[in-house]
C-alpha cells in the first residue's frame, strides 16, 4: 500500500489511457508524458501500461508500507527517500515506512514526474484503463486527484519477477527534454482558413503556456492568429497535440484530457514523438513551434520506439559509471 502524505498541485493515477473510448465522447487521458511512465514501468519490471502516479512539480510526499521497488522518470523534482537524494530514471528499493518526497522543478526543465511501483497501482480498470478521468469523474482513485490520506493498493508483482534495483535509463535514450523546447507539428488540416503568414508567425513566436492551462490543454500566449475569413467548422474528432485556434486568435494545444471533438479551425498537430516534451511544460514556461513533414514525424517516432526497445537489464556498467560521477 502507498499512502499519500501531501499531493502537490496535482497528483493522479495514470496509465497509458483509453484511446478507444473516444467513440463514447471519453477523452483518451493517460500520462501526459507517456514516454516517462513507460520507462518508469520498464525499470521496475512492469508492462508499459501499468498504472503509476503522475506528480506535478510542487511539494509532494508518499509513504510506502511494504518493501518495494520503485522508479521515477520524467522531470527532476529533487526526489528524496527519507531525506536521502535518489536519482530519477533509476530503479530504487524502498523500505517499509520510507517516505518519498518531491519538490518543485530542480533543473531548467520538468513539470511532471512519474512514479512506477513494481506490480503497478491496483485501482479498477474502467473502459480499458486505470487512468483518472478528471472531467468525467471516474477512473484512478474515485475519479479524482489524490488527496493527503489516500491509500493506494498495489498489485502483486508477477511471479518470477525478481525485484531489480539499480537499473538505470541512460540519458542518450530519452527525448530531448529541455527548457524552451521547439515542438514540431504537421500543418493542417485547416491551414487555408488562416491568413497566409500564419505558419511563419507561429514559427517565429516565442510562446508561453498560460496560467489557465491544465491536462486538457495549454493556451499559448505570445501570438494572435487570424482567420482568412470568418468560417464555421462542424465539430470534428481531434487528438492530443492538436493546435486549434478559437476566434480570439490565441492557439490552444490539446493535451491528453482534451475533449474528443472540437469546432475551431486547426492549424496543425504536434508530432507524437514531441508530446513528452510538451508534457513537461508548466504554466509560465516558454516554447517554440516549428512546422515539419510527415517523413520527419515517422523518423522521430521510429527513433523513440528504438529508445523504448532498450533493455535496462544490460546496463549495470552504465550505472556504475553514473554512480562514479561519469
Amino acid at each position: 500500500m502507498i499512502e499519500v502524505i501531501t499531493s502537490g498541485p496535482l497528483m493522479t493515477v495514470q496509465d497509458l489511457g483509453r484511446p478507444e473510448a473516444r467513440r463514447y465522447g471519453v477523452s483518451p487521458g493517460g500520462a501526459l508524458d507517456s514516454f516517462a511512465l513507460t520507462v518508469a514501468n520498464q525499470l521496475v519490471g512492469n508492462p508499459p501500461n501499468s498504472a503509476g502516479i503522475e506528480i506535478t512539480a510542487g511539494s509532494a510526499a508518499l509513504r510506502f508500507h511494504i518493501p518495494i521497488t520503485i522508479a521515477l522518470a520524467g522531470g527532476d523534482l529533487g526526489a528524496r527517500l527519507d531525506q536521502q537524494p535518489i536519482p530519477t530514471w533509476c530503479a530504487v528499493r524502498a523500505w517499509p515506512g520510507a517516505t518519498l518526497s518531491l519538490n518543485g522543478r530542480r533543473g531548467a526543465w520538468g513539470g511532471r514526474c512519474y512514479l512506477a511501483v513494481a506490480g503497478g497501482i491496483q485501482v479498477p480498470s474502467l473502459l480499458g484503463s486505470r487512468s483518472t478521468d478528471l472531467a468525467g469523474g471516474f477512473g484512478g482513485l474515485h475519479g479524482r486527484p489524490l488527496h493527503p490520506g489516500d491509500q493506494l493498493p498495489l498489485r502483486r508483482p508477477g511471479t518470477g519477477i525478481i525485484p531489480v534495483t539499480g537499473r538505470h535509463w541512460p540519458s542518450s535514450l530519452r527525448p530531448a527534454y529541455c527548457a524552451t523546447p521547439t515542438l514540431r507539428f504537421i500543418p493542417g488540416p485547416h491551414s487555408e482558413h488562416f491568413t497566409p503568414d500564419t505558419l511563419d508567425r507561429l514559427g517565429r513566436a516565442t510562446l508561453r503556456v498560460s496560467t489557465t492551462s491544465n491536462r486538457m490543454g495549454y493556451r499559448l500566449d505570445g501570438v494572435h492568429l487570424h482567420y482568412q475569413h470568418m468560417t464555421s467548422i462542424l465539430s470534428l474528432g481531434v487528438v492530443p497535440g492538436t493546435i486549434q485556434v478559437p476566434p480570439d486568435g490565441t492557439p490552444i494545444m490539446l493535451m491528453a484530457d482534451a475533449q474528443t471533438s472540437g469546432g475551431y479551425p486547426i492549424i496543425g498537430v504536434l508530432l507524437s514523438a514531441d508530446m513528452p516534451l510538451a508534457a513537461q511544460l508548466l504554466p509560465g514556461d516558454t516554447l517554440h513551434l516549428a512546422p515539419t513533414s510527415l517523413d520527419t514525424a515517422y523518423d522521430a517516432l521510429l527513433e523513440q520506439a528504438r529508445m523504448l526497445a532498450h533493455n535496462p537489464e544490460h546496463d549495470e556498467g552504465d550505472l556504475l559509471a553514473t554512480l562514479a560521477g561519469g
Binding site: P189, G237, G241, T242, L294, Y298
Partner: peptide, 12 residues
C-alpha cells in the same frame, strides 16, 4: 482526406 498529425487521418 487530410492528416491530423502523424497518427490520425481525417476524412471530411
Amino acid at each position: 482526406f487530410s492528416s491530423l498529425g502523424d497518427s490520425a487521418l481525417l476524412m471530411e
